[in-house]
Design a protein around this nucleic acid. Structure first.
Lengths: 131, 131
DNA sequence: CAGCATCCAACTGGATACTG
DNA sequence: CAGTATCCAGTTGGATGCTG
């Protein structure tokens, strides 16, 4: 398994494209929030401080199109729209949490590495030498 | 847990930034390849068909800076450089494989949803109505 | 409230050329 | 081979204004 040439076609095709859509900056965050509870458009916008309504709308459309999020129009005046995680979207919660757990576990180490790299760079280090 | 207001600060700060760097289009792919075996610069370029050397160099610098990949200069003429996964980088293999497994398991369903969404869109559907 | 349309600045990523 | 440097087109994303 480890010595296989490794065929990247399993990742480069539609799988790759899908991952790109799932893991983009906002999609992942929205999904995580909606896993906790349904949210309305402007609630989401406030929660994800920093997102523009344009980006939010785009991300929601994409998530909705992929079947991960459901758009529910509440019968109210003025109009209210609620976004909910779908069962399909829910299946992504665990992999995402695993990723978040990874960053929580390793962020310190990564920051140490960055500091070491940046310092070494100033000294002209350009990679280990090996036979 | 599920009814918490959900504090996004745990994801929006440095954690978020790190995830962005890890999950970008090429970084993830390079990491996956290097988990299988060390690779030289041009070997990687050929394996990841479609990447430019500029993007590859950038992605490798970033991975190296974050301590996920190691740059080893082999003592040869002409010069040869080998990139290897680090122990830290190796810890990302499992979460990444989980993600790949998810796409493999759910790609069909997602594509069904897309088809349904696109068709409904043509008919002017704009979300479910609920009380 | 929930969005869409438009304009524009910033950044990304590709092509090309050159170096040790 | 393993890159760096430069230029440029295309895309992204923010700001703003408007609609039902």
């Amino acid at each position: 398994m480890r010595s296989d040439p490794f065929d990247p076609s399993a990742i480069v095709g539609p799988h790759r494209e899908l991952l790109d859509q799932l893991l983009d900056k906002w999609g992942q965050l929205i999904l995580t929030v909606l896993c906790h509870e349904p949210r309305r458009f402007n609630e989401l916008k406030r929660t994800l401080d920093g997102i523009t309504q344009k980006s939010l709308a785009q991300a929601l459309r994409r998530l909705e199109r992929n079947g991960l999020v459901e758009r529910c129009v509440l019968q109210q005046r003025p109009i209210a729209v609620e976004y909910r995680i779908t069962p399909l979207g829910r299946t992504l919660e665990e992999p995402f949490l695993a990723l978040c757990a990874w960053t929580a576990d390793h962020l310190d180490e990564v920051e140490d590495r960055r500091a070491a790299y940046d310092e070494a760079e100033d000294d002209g280090y350009e990679g280990a030498f090996v036979a």
